[in-house]
Design a protein around this nucleic acid. Structure first.
Length: 363
DNA sequence: AAGCCGTGGAT
DNA sequence: TATCCAAGGCT
């Protein structure tokens, strides 16, 4: 089998496989429905694609349903309050996505009369839409012959062609392969088929090669070691940071909250007062670091792992008699915490101090 | 262009 | 338990 033969690989076996084995997903128009003329809703395609960035299907499903029910069209989202969107996104992570989601909805509503651009270039000019998402929306929602490459496609392509060059450097080479493989007919289904194949057959561990529509031409399988691919650059180890968080509770059940800076880690989200999170492990994490004097009681330590560091947060709680006026925060009833834009680390911190603050003990 | 940016499930 | 990593984008 030569490279020439591989470059003339047909997408047909994959599309046939997809017709039989595609996943049924809430935001997806199945091939059967598409054959009956049902068109994907660009708003739903866009919303799902943004939510799915670095996020599992399982995690996205309830958020997608919630957003769609609350904001059925892009113009509804554009008209929403920022805080409501951030609160609805809370728990899904990568909060810049939510900030950009809102900005994108506003741009579509104001600059495009509420209609999404139908080209890769037009889509990529919008906030939060990069190479992958622009190609995915163009292909899936508008049937454009756009080459879609995400983590799944990288894995499939790296194995199909036994590409030994490590990611992310090998991305351009892989993109060329995807471009050659993407058919003029059903490019959207092809993209979704590649991702379904990566998610269900060509998995990172123990791929089910015997069920793969590409099993006859896969170079990695021919080498008898599909798991070897894709080759990735070594990753750096996670440093540890530490800090302290302070949960101040009034007699009538309100706690002190504040809003984080608009950009950076957990940007625009809500938090309880904390010290800065320092790489030094000998820093002050005791009640002496509290924003104000109170009878602070230790409530243990919360460990939370972010993308690039691990946080060890000492938790302190105090009953507040005299409710001071905080210039950079507000007092919120504990019964209303579900409606706040609290990231998971903050829910953990509050739950450590007030075990019954949330329905689930975990978050 | 390499680092920043969450979370939780699978193995 | 530790590691990986999931439909990436922005700066």
């Amino acid at each position: 089998m030569t490279i020439t033969t591989l470059d003339s690989l047909s997408a047909k076996p994959l599309l046939d496989w997809y017709d039989r084995h595609h996943r049924d997903l809430p935001w997806r128009v199945s091939p059967g429905m598409a054959a009956r003329g049902v068109k994907p809703d660009p708003y739903r395609v866009w919303l799902s694609e943004v939510m799915l960035q670095q996020t599992t299907v399982q995690a996205v499903k309830p958020y997608f349903a919630k957003f769609l029910e609350r904001w059925p069209e892009v113009t509804d989202l554009a008209a929403a309050e920022n805080d409501e969107v951030m609160a609805a996104w809370a728990g899904l992570g990568y909060y810049a996505r939510a900030r950009n989601l809102k900005k994108c909805a506003e741009a579509v509503a104001k600059d495009h009369r509420g209609v999404f651009p139908d080209t890769e270039t037009g889509l990529k000019s919008l906030p939060g839409i990069g190479d992958y998402t622009a190609a995915a929306i163009a292909a899936i929602a508008f049937n454009r012959q756009a080459a879609v490459m995400d983590g799944n496609v990288e894995r499939v392509i790296s194995r199909l062609y036994a590409i030994e060059a490590p990611l992310p450097g090998a991305k351009p080479v892989m993109k060329d392969k995807v471009t050659l493989l993407t058919p003029a007919n059903r490019p959207g289904d092809f993209a979704q088929a590649m991702m379904d194949l990566g998610a269900t057959i060509c998995t990172p561990k123990r791929p089910a090669c015997s069920l793969c529509p590409f099993r006859g031409s896969c170079q990695a399988l021919k080498l008898a070691d599909p798991e070897f691919f894709p080759v990735k650059a070594a990753k750096k180890e996670k440093p540890v940071r530490q800090g302290a968080a302070f949960i101040a509770v009034t007699g009538d059940g309100e706690i002190l909250l504040r809003r984080r800076a608009e950009s950076g880690l957990l940007g625009g989200m809500t938090e309880v007062p904390t010290t800065s999170w320092t790489a030094r492990l000998d820093g002050e994490t005791s009640a002496a670091a509290a924003p104000f004097a109170a009878a602070w009681q230790a409530c243990g330590t919360v460990i939370h792992v972010f993308t690039h560091f691990e946080l060890r947060l000492s938790i302190w709680r105090a009953a507040i008699v005299q409710k001071l006026e905080a210039d950079d925060g507000w007092w919120e009833p504990v019964t209303n915490l579900e409606a706040q834009a609290l990231p998971t680390v903050m829910k953990k911190a509050i739950a450590a101090a007030i075990p019954l603050a949330f329905k689930t003990s975990k978050a």
